[in-house]
Amino acid sequence: MAAATKVLVVDDSLTMRALLSGALERIPNVVVVGSADGADEARSMVESLHPDVMTLDVEMPGMSGLEYLAEIMEKRPMPVIMFSTRTEAGAEASIEALRLGAIDCFPKPKVAVAAEFDKILAKLGKRIKAAKGANVRGASKKKAQAAAPLDWNGRLLAIGGEAASTNAMFDLFSTFPANCPPTVVVQHLGGGLAATLIDKMSAEIAPRIVLAEDGMTVEQGVIYLAAPGDAHVVVDGWPNGRLRMLPRDPVAGERPSISILFASVAKACGTEAIGLLLGADGEDGDAGVRALQAGGSYSVIPMENHALGFTLQRKLATQPVPMDQLSATILKLCSR
């Protein structure tokens, strides 16, 4: 049996620390090795207890959770799951936390009782176990330059990723020209965060980014982000494709599903598609990549050691893609 995942809980509220620790201890093969009331106490516990994962409150007196997260990612990167309030300000803080390198951000329960934590326990446990040993990285400090205008060859780009892919998406899209390839994104974000992510990205990237809606024409120069909800997003037809929303059951607990998007793209576009998987946990995405391969599409997937980069695949051919060459590779595949 694998060694238990060690978690350090950081929150300025004694009640929240106790409730969250109690909830985490109910997850099989997860052990809470300590709890801290703020950054100062957490620093010493990280050194002495060597946790695999940290849960961190965004709103704390003194050094805020965001400030401490930035310090962690700069000095000693480790998987961090954030907790934030269910407010507009909380959504903005959640997106900033994901951009800084947090692997996920959960809303704090409205009422500090054990039953509220039970509602998120399954997903929280899944994220914690997937986080153990993950390669994490902070936000890029160097502002990227957008690439030259694209001489587009007609290929569609479909992207799938976890909440932890947020900083990678910021890095990637900041290099895209305004006339980027039409791009459809499924990201496993918490409810209510997609609109905030779009607002924040819109101010920093050259292409237009919008919330995916049923019936939208898929156009060059636009990034379509599917929000979590009651439907999957698919691409119908190519060229001159449209987005369709399918109200079907979740796949591997996720809706919209990366695999369903990728499978629809493989069917609609065939060889005129590229699927990019950004660090998904394997439960949603793998089947979609297989569909892309069967349809003759390109797929770009993380190497087993994600820190090394990605692998470009088409049928039986494969090619390594270093992390710093991801954008250039994608844009080249979409160029004449």
Rank of each mutant, 00 (worst) to 15 (best):
L19S: 02
C180D: 02
E213M: 15
T87V: 09
I260C: 09
R242T: 13
R76L: 02
L243P: 14
E92R: 09
E116F: 00
I258T: 05
R242M: 08
A36T: 08
A144P: 01
V30N: 00
D151G: 03
S13H: 00
L189A: 07
G282E: 02
L197F: 11
S13N: 00
P109D: 04
P207R: 02
V113P: 01
S264D: 12
K332G: 13
D52E: 15
K142W: 06
E219A: 11
K267Y: 06
G38L: 01
Q293S: 12
L14G: 11
D12G: 06
A4P: 02
A23Y: 01
A291G: 14
E71M: 15
A91W: 04
L150E: 13
V46D: 07
A226G: 13
R155E: 06
L292Y: 02
A280S: 11
D57A: 13
T318F: 14
D281L: 09
A163H: 03
V185Y: 11
L312S: 03
F310I: 02
T5Y: 01
P322G: 05
R290M: 10
E304S: 14
G288P: 01
V9Y: 03
P239G: 09
E71V: 08
A307D: 02
R208E: 15
R248F: 15
P182Y: 07
K129P: 00
K123W: 09
R208N: 07
W152C: 11
G154D: 11
A148H: 06
C105G: 08
T217A: 13
V113G: 06
A131K: 14
A252W: 00
Q313P: 13
A93W: 04
G229M: 07
P239H: 04
H306S: 08
L14D: 11
L331R: 15
T318E: 13
P107F: 07
A226Q: 01
H50R: 12
S257T: 07
L316K: 09
F170Q: 15
P322I: 00
E47R: 08
R255P: 08
L100D: 07
G125H: 01
C269M: 09
V185C: 11
E71Q: 14
T55N: 13
K141N: 05
R127G: 05
P250V: 04
N167L: 11
Y224P: 12
P256N: 12
V289W: 12
S35M: 08
V222H: 06
A212C: 10
A206Y: 10
A2T: 05
G65K: 07
A36K: 07
D199G: 14
L20V: 06
S21W: 02
A266D: 00
I260V: 09
A195P: 15
E272P: 00
A307T: 06
K126S: 14
G101C: 00
D118S: 12
V222A: 06
L124C: 12
S202E: 07
M54W: 01
V7D: 10
A89C: 06
N240W: 09
M78A: 05
M1L: 12
N179V: 15
M54A: 13
H50Q: 08
A139N: 04
I81Y: 10
S64F: 11
E71A: 12
D151A: 04
L157I: 04
I95W: 04
E71Y: 09
A280D: 05
